[in-house]
Amino acid sequence: MRNGVIGLATFVSVAAGAGDDYHLQPVPVGDSAQVFVGKTEGFARGNGGNIVNTGFIVGTDGVIVIDSGPSRAYGEQQRAAIEKQTALPIRQVFITHAHPDHFLGDQAYSGIAISALPKTIAAIRDHGEALSDNLYRLLGGWMLGTRLVPPDHAAQPGTVIVAGRKLRLIAAQGHTDADLMIFDEATRTLFAGDLVFFQRAPTTPNANIEQWLSTLDTIDQLDFQYLVPGHGPIVQDHAAIAQTRDYLRWLSTTLHNAATRGWDIQEVMQTPIPERFRSLSVLDQEFPRSVTHLYPDIELNVLPKQTAAKHE
């Protein structure tokens, strides 16, 4: 399977020519944090998986990187772009969670500590290979040479000093079962990972909506000046949190109501989506995906257990 996929990737790479330059340009946030803002799209050959926000913070004696992107090429180009901005060495990479657009650039940081929450590390070890295979299928040549490198350091929640910079590491859950947020105290910049989306429909393959909503309440209490969502434009207010919450609440209510009415999955997928969400990009792909992820557990809750099995 893997060989076949790699073969395909090689072929596509040749066909696409020099298509693997992500043209990464950091956008300054505050005075020392910067963000590579990805497109608000889904994985596609046209974007090479650059659909994610990654970032870095320049400390007094080094640099902190937040998420390494979807491929080896992305990680290498991200590192080169950072090294153009500063001569200080990269001290640490934080991986916010175990989704492939956030950690498959790890290879570019060999020899540097890569930290993530323990459950994130376990999930990357267990499922990273399958996730990477799927990106080979979706992105083709962009993935050339990408290998799985699981983070090797367990991130400890709380305040830490890295590269002379005071960071608050916040462990949360909801988007996945381990979501790490990084709060830079000096610039009051919150790297929220995929706990917050903006102008792009949230993804839910490993989500627990109730936990996620509760985490959003926690994020609302944080005294940030800038919030960097995992996907979508950087904000200086609570609009992205409110939008993510609004969408998740609607999604959860819609699915629970459908289950109570006895609908099957395909009927749920026909649900009209409220006008206020129509502007979210990739909504038409993400809503049916979310129904597939979340509905099976919800529907089972309304199907009472009947007479036990009879073996003859």
Binding site: R261, G262, L300, V302, L303, P304, K305, Q306, T307, A308, A309, K310, H311
Partner: peptide, 11 residues
């Protein structure tokens, strides 16, 4: 231990 267990409902 659960083979053939049925969950069901009528609407």
């Amino acid at each position: 231990g659960h083979l053939g267990e049925v969950n069901a409902r009528i609407w």
